[in-house]
Design a protein around this nucleic acid. Structure first.
Lengths: 182, 182
DNA sequence: TCACCTTGGTGAATATACTGAACAGAGGGC
DNA sequence: GCCCTCTGTTCAGTATATTCACCAAGGTGA
């Protein structure tokens, strides 16, 4: 009964992938993908999972739905981002603070030299991010690593975690947290 | 790959239904339900949907809290990010692709000169991001704006939207989408 | 023009999801 | 003791999901 074909096709086209490319990445035959996209058959959970994996999404993500909102301005200039941290040592600037029904906390974080978030707060959430300048030591659970420009992280916020700028200049991170608990 | 059997069995038992009762209500044979619950086979979307319907649930509801608790590492080096687009024109590199129960799609997007995401599709999600290099024209709903380094956006993905690199070099965006349905 | 690549789709063969009947075990009457 | 009904599982047969080889259309270059 569910008509997932169109949605899959849109996701594939959005990534500018051909049926055959997606087939190669997912390990599913191209004819199967063609049939699924035209709702000619109902794929098994395993095969759908494999295809979604190649598209960078998940079964929960694929099936989730939201209701949403009203007119607003989607753009936020660099000077419009709202500071929610201490600008001197650690700056947290929010993108889309007043977005209605906001379910995502997107932050531009700037750490002064030697700045440290201190010990961690435990939320039921997930967060990810990427270092865009400088060098940041990230501690998650027992694990610790120094991330530099282009390196990323993704972890469950219930694990104790903290960030420390170990570079010789300011460090910047772009991060996202969902749900937006703060 | 996904192990949905145990969860289904628990849901059925919580409702105090026998395999045969659930089979009668869902229109699926009892042997099929038995096999699914013991992870002996991967049901098609149609049959799973029918079973969930008899349990008073839906596909989105069933998958919304499907979690796997595998050991993982929270760090992702720049070279570990997985490409899910076409690297030449538009590159989408995922941070944390293998994260269990991932509810967030964090992307490092790189647009070649003149690259365009093409026609805009609506999907039920929210997304935010920030330009970290170059100049990108973002169109959301009727609205259009050129964003440069440090500028951000936040909008509901149900609005038609597209991105176009209008700079003279490659442009980069760091973005996040939840749920990971992009 | 031709050769050659890509695109997505189709039909026959195969693997697998799905069915209906038959099975073993646990109570419950009586 | 026997009979009946429930529980979940197993097995052979059937429907369908999945594959592989092939097809037709569109684009590119020589």
């Amino acid at each position: 009964m569910p008509k997932i074909g169109l949605k899959l096709r849109e996701m594939r086209r959005r990534r500018d992938l051909s049926v055959r490319e997606l087939a190669a990445r997912s390990g599913i035959s191209h004819s199967t993908i063609s049939l699924i996209e035209r709702d000619k058959m109902s794929p098994s959970i395993d095969t759908l999972s494999a295809v979604l994996d190649a598209l960078g999404t998940t079964l929960p993500g694929f099936f989730s739905d939201l209701q949403s909102s009203l007119p607003y301005t989607p753009f936020y200039g660099a000077e419009d981002l709202v500071e929610i941290g201490k600008a001197e040592t650690i700056s947290y600037r929010v993108i889309g603070l007043n977005h209605p029904n906001r379910q995502l906390l997107m932050l531009h974080e700037t750490y002064a030299v030697g700045a440290d978030t201190g010990e961690a707060f435990a939320h039921a959430a997930q967060e990810a991010g990427m270092v865009i300048s400088g060098a940041v030591e990230v501690t998650v659970g027992g694990q610790k690593k120094i991330l530099k420009k282009g390196d990323g992280y993704y972890f469950d916020s219930r694990l104790p975690h903290c960030f420390r700028n170990v570079g010789e200049e300011r460090s910047e991170i772009l991060s996202a947290i969902t749900p937006p608990t703060y």
